[in-house]
């Protein structure tokens, strides 16, 4: 589904990602972990198509298409979803209106008829139940005055509505209490299918108690320095990032 090869990304001449390789296949859940400033969020933004970065070299293939040739909205319509670490507020625009626009843009791209108001409301009710989100939230303006937890739940709700092929959740767990964390994780698990894939970006292992990844990668100073199964997350939890840093340091020097 997603194949990143030899990716090098910089911002204002400063290297952020170096020689990064990542293969994500259908049905898989990947966790990307790493200390602050290791380039996790940059990776998510680059895949989503934010243009504040320079791609110096490498390639990103998404379903065998060159992702660099697609603008951000096309990527989204082709099934890439990013759960934002800091979802922005859009005052005066209701979630319902926002999402209906988004869904119909996607449907247009896929050559489908737009959803009518009634059809959309039905879909919304369905997905509300699925991700266990409160009814009143969807009548409010996008993220306006939402608590941290509500914002993150709203991201998962949007993900449920858009049914992405590839979801990248950027630190969706940060700032969540345990109940909100469970709601978010539960949503992700319910949306998990054989034909889609999820990349979970997180600083802590905590989220991975609820979302069980197939692979864990450790990102450090712009490189993936270690990859493994779900047990790698536990190892990190007990040994801390210093352990990875030391190993990585030895690797880089050697």
């Amino acid at each position: 589904m997603l194949s990143i090869k030899n990716l090098q990304v910089s911002i204002n001449g400063k290297l952020i990602l170096k020689d990064l390789d990542l293969e994500v296949k259908e049905g898989e859940v990947h966790a990307i972990m790493g200390p602050n400033g290791s380039g996790k969020s940059t990776l998510a933004s680059v895949v989503a198509g934010r243009d504040t970065f320079d791609i110096d070299k490498g390639e990103i293939l998404y379903r065998d298409q060159n992702l660099m040739d697609m603008n951000p909205e096309t990527r989204a319509r082709e099934g890439i979803f990013m759960g934002f670490q800091y979802p922005v507020e859009i005052p005066g625009v209701s979630i319902a209106n926002f999402m209906r626009t988004a869904i119909n843009e996607k449907r247009k791209h896929l050559g489908l008829e737009p959803l009518s108001g009634a059809e959309f409301l039905k879909l919304m009710e369905e997905k509300k139940k699925l991700v266990d989100i409160q009814s009143k939230l969807t009548n409010r303006s996008v993220n306006e005055g939402f608590s941290g937890g509500e914002k993150k739940k709203n991201e998962i709700f949007q993900m449920a509505l858009l049914e992405p092929r590839l979801a990248i959740l950027d630190e969706t767990d940060s700032g969540l209490d345990i109940d909100a964390l469970k709601v978010v994780a539960n949503g992700v698990n319910k949306l998990r299918r054989k034909d889609n894939a999820t990349i979970v970006i997180t600083h802590y292992q905590r989220l991975l108690d609820y979302i069980i990844p197939d692979y864990v990668h450790v990102l450090y100073e712009g490189r993936i320095v270690k990859s493994g199964g779900k047990e790698l997350a536990l190892e990190l939890e007990s040994k801390g990032y210093d352990w990875v840093k030391k190993e990585a340091g030895a690797q880089i020097q050697g």
């Binding site: 603008n71 922005v88 005066g92 625009v93 926002f98 843009e105 303006s141 858009l162």
Partner: peptide, 30 residues
């Protein structure tokens, strides 16, 4: 209109023109 707001819309598949339309209408809703 912030870059972040626009990118948020783009990432949901809403193109630039529609995004501006949405944001402006939200602003003028009252």
């Amino acid at each position: 209109i912030s870059e972040d707001q626009l990118f948020y819309c783009l990432q949901r598949g809403i193109d630039m023109e529609s995004a501006i339309g949405l944001i402006v209408n939200g602003y003028a809703k009252e």
